[in-house]
């Protein structure tokens, strides 16, 4: 139970958006393997504070893998080596004694580095503002059961809707593309009758916004799907493209 490992950490430190950053090197001894990666960083920060060094800033909230707040890149992989897992749910049992871990923030021009490993993903909000909703005012909904949706369709829509907006897709994409994020929302809504109504305007507007925010173009590396904590499929990207073609042809 109480097995522990020693690690070498190479952590990106950067004061704020304007300054340039660099790597700092820390040794972590006797890290219990049952704790999570963020708890390991908690220990690091406690040690640093005691030594009179400012702790490493990193973001986290729910620590259950659902809020999408946490996230950084470990040895070149967003959210680390474990598939379908955010860093808060990544446990130290997946690492070996003596490992060197290079920890970098999610890098993409639209994600400004706030400090150290903390980035601002507000540009995702802008993409949603461009049409990631159903235009309905409160109180206008018809009886919930008056809209029939087949179980399989509902499940598929859910698969797309499961996105937590953590930004790992962008971080892992060689082009820093937000295609997976954007398409997941487009795809969620177009698979439901409620969302279908606005499909054409939505897809055009959201895709344009995604470009405008400075994200790259998807060139089908599929790395996003592999690092996505919710396993969101690149099928959504295909759906978005089909939808865009339809919106042009019609």
């Amino acid at each position: 139970m109480s097995k522990s490992i020693n690690l070498k950490l190479q952590v990106w430190r950067q004061e704020n958006e304007e300054t340039s950053g660099d790597f700092h090197y820390y040794s972590m001894n006797e890290v219990p393997v049952d704790i999570s990666f963020l708890e390991m960083l908690d220990i690091l920060n406690e040690n640093l504070t005691k030594e009179g060094v400012e702790p490493v800033s990193f973001d986290s909230d729910c620590r259950e893998g659902i809020c999408g707040t946490c996230g950084f890149v470990i040895n070149g992989i967003a959210h680390g080596p474990q598939a379908k897992t955010t860093v808060c749910q990544l446990h130290m049992r997946h690492f070996n004694d003596g490992d060197t871990l290079v920890i970098e923030p999610f890098r993409a021009t639209p994600f400004k580095i706030v400090r150290d490993l903390v980035v601002d993903r507000g540009s995702f909000d802008k993409i949603i503002q461009a049409g990631g909703y159903v235009s309905i005012n409160t109180g206008n909904g018809p009886d919930a059961n008056s809209i029939l949706i087949g179980k399989d369709d509902a499940e598929e829509a859910f698969d797309s809707a499961a996105c937590i907006g953590c930004g790992a897709c962008v971080a892992s994409c060689p082009n820093a593309s937000a295609a997976l994020f954007t398409s997941a929302k487009i795809s969620h809504l177009l698979q439901l009758p409620q969302g279908k109504v606005e499909e054409r305007a939505r897809v055009k507007s959201m895709v344009d916004k995604m470009d405008e925010e400075g994200f790259g173009a998807c060139s089908n590396h599929g790395e996003c799907e592999a690092v996505c904590p919710k396993g969101i499929s690149i099928k959504n990207i295909a759906n978005m493209r089909r939808s865009l073609i339809k919106s042009i042809v019609k």
């Binding site: 909703y133 009886d143 919930a144 059961n145 087949g150 179980k151 509902a154 809707a161 409620q194």
Partner: peptide, 22 residues
């Protein structure tokens, strides 16, 4: 009851049975 109507109209993918009902 209004909440459920509102959320479904927004596109919240609640669980459904094979008949398409909630």
């Amino acid at each position: 009851t209004n909440i459920i109507d509102q959320c479904v109209a927004q596109g919240v993918p609640f669980a459904r049975d094979y008949g398409g009902l909630l």
